[in-house]
């Protein structure tokens, strides 16, 4: 028995689809126009409408120019290197902490949980002034080690995601392993860590994207821009009146965005789940 549809229902349905189409269009328009611009020659860009597709999709000069002038290649190496080291450290630390917080009752357990929750309310950017001073006292400004330590720092979202995942792993696993003569280290590294993989992948993707896109700290803490160029700081050099060739800038924007697009398409589900798990129970 189907539900009767009145004209009003059809009208509401129409409005729903219209709103979805308009909004998706608005979300994609800035990106798509950027893609169009990136494939245009200088003259073509000047003469044609900014929302018209390029004459030829094989005009790659803008990409080549950007790649050669910006030093983005070095930026990729630094950013990806920093990203890999940082996500490994931070996910390891996060899952170790989540393990002890979830599996053991000890004095200080609640205190640590609250300390992390409270920390998530204080915006990290607010403390930049004092952190900068501390880092420069420790000689960690203009050093990749310093930047990595800072980015690995405290990642409350990962800890939430991992804690939640631990709650769903039965403790019977730990207990039987202990009876078999396993140490608690063994339980964590040999039994639980392999099971934790999906949650770890989610954390790594979220954290990885964050680090790849990071600009503020990279700019502040890696001041020798020749030596330590990240993707963001390399792109940033195109700001300013001297370089306002949008067709080249757009090519640069695409080069920087492409890896993220690939990651997004491959790991869509993990990204959505990660976002939700990190926030719902927080």
């Amino acid at each position: 028995m189907g539900v009767e549809r009145t004209p009003k229902d059809y009208f509401l349905k129409f409005l729903k689809h219209l709103s979805l189409i308009i909004t998706s269009f608005a979300c994609l328009l800035p990106l798509v126009s950027c893609v169009f611009a990136a494939f245009k020659t200088k003259e073509e860009f000047g003469l044609t409408s900014k929302v018209a597709p390029p004459e030829s999709w094989l005009h790659l000069d803008n990409f080549i120019n950007f790649w050669n002038d910006s030093g983005i290649g070095q930026g990729f190496i630094t950013s990806i290197g920093v990203m890999l080291v940082t996500i490994l450290i931070s996910v390891m630390l996060g899952s170790m902490l989540a393990y002890v917080l979830d599996r053991f009752t000890f004095r200080g357990n609640a205190l640590i949980r609250h300390a992390f929750t409270l920390a998530s309310l204080i915006p990290g950017l607010a403390m930049q002034v004092t952190i900068y001073k501390m880092m420069s006292n420790l000689n960690l400004v203009d050093s990749l080690v310093g930047y990595v330590i800072m980015m690995a720092g405290t990642d409350v979202i990962s800890i939430y995601i991992l804690l939640q995942y631990f709650e769903n792993l039965p403790t019977a696993l730990d207990e039987s392993a202990i009876i078999e003569g396993c140490t608690y280290y063994g339980v964590f590294f040999r039994i639980l860590m392999p099971l934790l993989r999906p949650a770890m992948v989610t954390c790594m993707i979220l954290k990885g994207v964050g680090i790849y896109n990071e600009y503020y700290n990279a700019n502040l803490y890696l001041q020798n821009k020749q030596k330590y160029k990240t993707v963001s700081t390399a792109l940033y050099t195109y700001l300013g009146p001297t370089k306002s060739q949008y067709e080249i800038i757009c090519a640069g924007v695409l080069i920087c965005t492409l890896p993220i697009l690939i990651i997004f398409i491959l790991f869509q589900k993990q990204i959505y789940n990660g976002m939700t798990n990190g926030a719902v129970k927080g």
Binding site: S33, K50, S232, Y246, V253, C256
Partner: peptide
Amino acid sequence: AMFFPFLINGIAIGFIFKFFYTRGHV
């Protein structure tokens, strides 16, 4: 389509919109 902008580099977003808002552009 609605979520992807969140993943884009902030500096890249800056350029995208500089281009987007420039007089006579997108």
